[in-house]
């Protein structure tokens, strides 16, 4: 697939507010719209939309003060960088396991907290790197190749 020249070097950062369910999904929608405009393959757009949505919801639900999502488009790949300022993840291996969730009952009633977000991102992204420091924050980098 090809990304048009116009898209080369495109980089944008979106702020995601914590606990704000009314605008949750806005960053993912914006990312999807940009990818559509530059004509990225539909299957890749779907994988990116799923992953950015899961990452965005994790910022809304789990990060104390929300966070930031950066979309970075190069001719070879789309990179999604997700950063927050805490509370961090103590056991990343555990967090990556399907079904593991620390979500509250209130969040679960909304249909979140199945513990499927990180596993979904893992299966959608070509590369996923996650690092976290308790008390400092979490950084999640996902790369999607423009095959």
């Amino acid at each position: 697939m090809e990304v048009s020249n116009r898209a080369e070097g495109l980089k944008e950062t979106y702020d995601v507010a914590g606990r704000d369910f009314s605008s949750a999904g806005a960053a993912s929608s914006r990312i999807k719209r940009i990818l559509q405009q530059i004509g990225v393959d539909q299957g890749i757009i779907r994988r990116i939309a799923v992953s950015s949505y899961e990452a965005e919801m994790n910022l809304v639900i789990h990060a104390s003060n929300g966070g930031r999502i950066t979309l970075d488009i190069s001719p070879d790949a789309v990179t999604i960088l997700v950063e927050d300022d805490g509370p961090g993840i103590t056991d990343i291996k555990k967090a990556m396991q399907p079904g593991y969730s620390t979500a509250s009952d209130e969040i679960r009633e909304m249909g979140f907290g199945a513990g499927m977000g990180l596993p979904n991102m893992q299966s959608c992204a070509d590369e996923l790197e996650i690092s976290s420091e308790p008390g400092v924050g979490t950084t999640l980098k996902m790369v999607f190749m423009n095959r």
Binding site: F21, S22, A24, G25, S28, A49, Y53, M57, M110, G111
Partner: peptide, 16 residues
């Protein structure tokens, strides 16, 4: 088809 009725069903439907 769902029994969820909160705002976030819209984002999911739109993204997919």
């Amino acid at each position: 088809i769902t029994n969820q009725k909160h705002l976030n069903i819209v984002a999911v439907a739109s993204l997919l």
